[in-house]
Design a binder for these strands. Structure first.
Length: 655
DNA sequence: CTAGGGTTAG
């Protein structure tokens, strides 16, 4: 009788436990259930243990460590349990651990099945080291799974991730009857290695297509910069879904074609589609990049009306849009009042926003506030914090954060963090210290590191070190036009005209094209982009006319063009003409012509503002009594009453 | 329990 009683009770417990697990939503909840199960010995039940593990490894957030501990207490895990853990770890931040679990499975003589391979290959795709992929492929063949549809498809996408098109193709050919998913994976593999024609051929040959097939083509075209093909394919698509629209919006925005990105968004609304969080973040990112504050504000109203403001990614994109459009107050308002839920991205974005606007101290304060809210910083948070320190000259603080991020926070320092330190020392003028720091780095310095030091050489006019850096850069990345421009400016400032000419010569010998500079300005919710080129348009002519008038007035106020920074082997008059054509000058002139006297003129430039334009902006702010905000490649410049918020970074260049 | 497309921070 007693025995039956216990048995009866345990069945009840069993059912109760399963029903509890079904409603389990958080890690602490799971821990309670687990404790409860251990008390009654139910945690040894394979079904319960499996369900606990599945929840911890795949469904719940932040429960992966717990799932590994759970797993370690299971005496003889069945294949399902191994697979569950392999799966959970494969999508984690440490895909490497997934491979370790797979190895353990083999050591424990539990034969891997098709599920094990599908999961572990995904881990390999997310993993850095290239050799594991080949090894796993040989295991797949050894166990006879190479013709398995799912395993084969994962192999294809793993090789696609690696950029090994030939291997991806072999894996694809091993699949006897590839379905549409497998076809989409091999098309993606072609785009990954920029084989657009290969992708097109496969797309034609596909026995049948779903909407993803078309979307893969759209994404591939936009990533390859073939926007014309993307557009015409999009027009010919039978069924455009939400992803198709988002792909077009983000694809055009990431190629700098913000007007087209807005256009697709408007079209989406016209077609009666409801924008989702992805299309909204895409179009907000276009506003952010173009500096289109007015358009961004309209979207903000749209988002509030549609009640989408509570979606974290939308809030993050909104905050970022305001920050990049110079609206730091609006950005902090969104952050403080409109985002009920915040993620690490929200906090990091706000820290970066403050840093971008030169509020280094406030950025650090916010970092500490974030800690009080028990939000754990990640590697990117530290990039923003270090950026804040270097742009506000907070040397001690920056140094401390750099030390603590590893010792106290346990975050591995990446090359980007080292780059921030080079920038910190370099901006402060400690060039030798920056150089020494680079030589003692635990990893090989890349071109970005040296380029940062070259930038510092340019600020502080150090020709000797710049020449040394030039050699490093010519080994690592000899085709970056920005490096040549920077170097020739350093020579020009030092009056070394022969060297300027030689840099210029090597540029043309190696057929290196300067990155075309553009500046954009939003007037009446329309974004106008100016490029220093020979083409003519009505808008450009209007800007040019106004600019001539402005420059005349500035000259009467005593302005002398700074032609030093312009390449030196052209005639004086041509030089003046060249700096007159700078896109930021055209944009500001256009703003003066078209915008009424009270409004702030906001300009976005894709490169760094040139010293002459910087001076001109200061003068205009004084003579015309206008506030001008220029966002360039690295920061905001806010001009008013003849001075700039960047504390005249450029003055050092001239002295 | 499995595979493919679009997403914000540097």
């Amino acid at each position: 009788m007693r025995c039956r009683g216990i048995r009866h009770m345990s069945i009840n417990h069993h059912l109760q436990c399963i029903s509890l697990l079904r409603d389990c939503k958080t890690l602490s909840h799971l821990k309670q259930i687990h404790a409860h199960a251990s008390k009654t010995g139910l945690d040894a039940d394979p079904l319960i243990a499996g369900k606990l593990l599945l929840l911890a490894a795949t469904t719940l957030a932040d429960a992966l460590d717990y799932s590994r501990r759970l797993f370690s207490h299971i005496p003889s895990p069945d294949p399902f349990m191994y697979n569950t853990l392999i799966r959970g770890l494969s999508e984690s931040d440490h895909p490497h651990h997934s491979l370790l679990t797979y190895n353990q499975m083999r050591r424990d003589s539990v034969p891997p099945d098709s599920f094990s391979f599908a999961f572990v290959l995904k881990a390999a795709a997310n993993c850095k080291s290239p050799n594991v992929g080949w090894q796993l492929h040989s295991h797949v063949i050894h166990h006879g799974f190479e013709s398995h549809l799912f395993v084969g498809t994962t192999l294809v996408s793993m090789y696609a991730e690696r950029g090994c098109l030939a291997s991806a193709r072999k894996a694809f050919d091993d699949i006897p009857q590839p379905n549409v998913v497998a076809w989409n994976a091999i098309v993606t593999a072609c785009f990954r290695v920029d084989d657009v024609e290969g992708a097109e051929r496969l797309f034609e040959r596909m026995p049948w297509k779903n909407s993803t097939s078309w979307n893969v083509m759209l994404a591939g075209y936009t990533k390859a910069g073939e926007l014309g093909s993307a557009r015409s394919l999009f027009l010919s698509m039978p069924n455009k879904d939400a992803v198709s629209w988002s792909t077009m919006i983000t694809g055009f925005a990431s190629n700098g074609l913000f007007g087209d990105a807005f256009g697709f968004f408007r079209e989406l609304l016209r077609e009666g589609c409801r924008p989702n969080e992805v299309s909204l973040t895409g179009v907000l990112s276009a506003c952010a990049q173009a500096g289109a504050l007015e358009s961004g504000k309209i979207l903000h109203a749209h988002i509030e009306k549609a009640g989408l403001g509570s979606i974290i990614s939308v809030g993050n994109a909104l905050l970022d849009m305001y920050a990049r459009c110079g609206g730091i107050l609006m950005a902090s308002r969104v952050f403080d009042w409109e985002m009920e839920k915040k993620s690490i991205v929200s906090w990091t974005s706000m820290i970066a926003a403050l840093a971008m606007h030169g509020y280094g101290e406030e950025a650090i304060q916010l970092f500490h506030k974030m800690e009080e809210h028990r939000m754990r910083p990640d590697g990117i948070t530290f990039i923003s914090v270090l950026y804040a320190c270097s742009h506000s000259g907070l040397m001690e603080q920056g140094h401390k954060f750099f030390q603590e991020m590893e010792s106290t926070y346990g975050i591995e320092r990446s090359i980007e963090h080292y780059g921030c330190m080079v920038d910190l020392y370099g901006r402060a003028g400690l060039l030798d210290k920056a150089y020494e720091f680079i030589t003692n780095m635990p990893m090989k310095p890349n071109a970005i590191i040296w380029r940062t030091l070259l930038g510092a050489c340019s600020i502080h006019g150090n020709v000797r070190l710049a020449e040394h850096v030039r050699e490093k850069l010519s080994e690592l990345d000899p085709s970056d036009s920005g490096d040549y421009v920077l170097l020739s400016n350093i020579y020009a400032v030092a009056g070394k005209w022969k060297d300027v000419a030689s840099v210029r010569r090597s540029m043309s010998e190696q057929r290196i094209q300067k990155t075309p500079g553009w500046s954009s300005i939003e007037v009446d919710k329309v974004v106008y982009t100016f490029v220093a080129s020979d083409d003519i348009s009505d808008v450009k002519e209007e800007a040019h006319k106004k600019l001539t008038e402005v420059m005349l007035r500035l000259k009467m106020e005593g302005y002398v063009p700074e032609i030093m920074s312009v390449l030196h082997d052209v005639e004086e008059e041509e030089k003046e003409d060249a700096i007159l054509r700078h896109s930021e000058k055209l944009a500001v002139a256009f703003g003066l012509a078209r915008m009424h006297g009270e409004s702030v003129i906001r300009i976005v430039k894709n490169l760094r503002i040139c010293p002459d334009c910087h001076t001109v902006m200061k003068l205009i702010s004084k003579v015309y009594k206008r506030e001008i905000v220029v966002r360039d490649r690295s920061r905001f410049h806010s001009f008013s009453e003849g001075s700039c918020s960047c504390r005249d970074y450029w003055e050092q260049l001239k002295s």
